[in-house]
Design a protein around this nucleic acid. Structure first.
Lengths: 192, 192
DNA sequence: ACAAAATATTGAACAAGTTCAATAACTGAA
DNA sequence: TTCAGTTATTGAACTTGTTCAATATTTTGT
């Protein structure tokens, strides 16, 4: 069941079989059924997760009760609240399964064990964090500069298979617009 | 001149004097006068920089010619285009001095040398990247959920001394609104 | 296959933010 | 000190996106 994880890691760095095995053994598999939560606001995020099946939404609820989706995580993607996890503080995020899902979880202690005993793991997470960092910068620029129409088109182009598994409400919460307006955008695009 | 850099590093991790000295010696100081560029779109970003004096804006110009500010960097802040720097690809960003400034620059080769010879440096950059990562996530949620008025108020509260050194045009480009609209927001706030 | 629930669409009135053009205030260099 | 260039303010018309409420469509559980 760590086949997918191994391939994901090797995509970022090179690691011996022994190192891979030692690292992967630190993960525990968990099933999360549709609509169930991996994390809720106010709780400590005690894991870093790798999705092997299904789909999650990572979102925030603001003071007006509106939900903003920070990101989606499907098979082969990592999922955590890095702020809560690294700084041991209550999470401001919810992580909910949108489909029946399975994740591999590593605890903070085991991750630190890996940092100390498998030097390359430090590099792995540095490289992964950097890649996410770049994607976040890109998204900020896009959110600042692009119209909702364009952000929607970008989204379905960038994540064509993800898009098919999401409702308009979820996509709108990611784009930062109301789902009614997304509906109007879709009509406008379809009529072309 | 590396006094500020040393204090900044020790703020993230602990390092012996020897390690600090070895690492800091890899930096070269550079002066950048107001309105001059540290990086332009299309160029390779060959440095990671630490600002010891002055102020920079890191921005993008979109296809309509509008500028979006990704972030500002003043004394004691780091500045680079991490995408261009780590992936050796042409930058999509401009980095311009808004005041007469001075930066300490480290090259990619020297940074890699540090990774290989001062193990803790890997941790330093992992920790720094994580902190930035968290800030970027926060900004995405804020941009999605908050009105321009609130984002402006947040900005001047979060960066009170930075705000005084910036023009409305710069702040508007950071908030993602027109400077005229920012002017109207300021009037509305002042009238209360 | 059916009922219930969740999701999507639509329109009308409204709010937030842009654009353009004109004027005012400020800054810096000679 | 002046004046030229930059930066800020304002108003009017416009565009983008929201809100609310009603209706249509799809999905889900039994």
């Amino acid at each position: 069941m760590t086949e997918l994880l191994i391939r994901n890691i090797l995509n970022h760095i090179t690691l011996s079989n022994k190192e891979l095995e030692n690292f992967c053994n630190l993960f525990n598999q968990k099933e999360v059924l549709k609509k169930h939560f991996l994390l809720r606001e106010g709780k400590l995020c005690k894991f870093e997760g790798f999705v092997i099946k299904g789909l999650f939404r990572v979102y925030h609820i603001d003071s007006n009760g509106f939900e903003q989706v920070l990101y989606f995580a499907k098979e082969n993607w990592w999922v955590t609240d890095i702020d809560s996890f690294t700084n041991d503080k209550p999470s401001q995020l919810y992580i909910q399964a949108l489909e029946d899902s399975e994740v591999l979880l590593i605890s903070k202690r085991d991750k630190e064990f890996a940092y100390n005993n498998i030097p390359k793991i430090e590099e792995l997470f540095r490289v992964m964090t950097q890649k996410t960092h770049i994607a976040l910068q890109r998204r900020i620029i896009d959110n600042l500069s692009k119209t909702a129409d364009q952000r929607y088109l970008d989204f379905i182009e960038k994540y064509p298979n993800l898009f098919q598994r999401l409702t308009n409400v979820q996509i709108a919460a990611y784009l930062g617009i109301s789902h009614e307006f997304l509906s109007k955008i879709r009509r406008k695009i379809a009529s072309k």
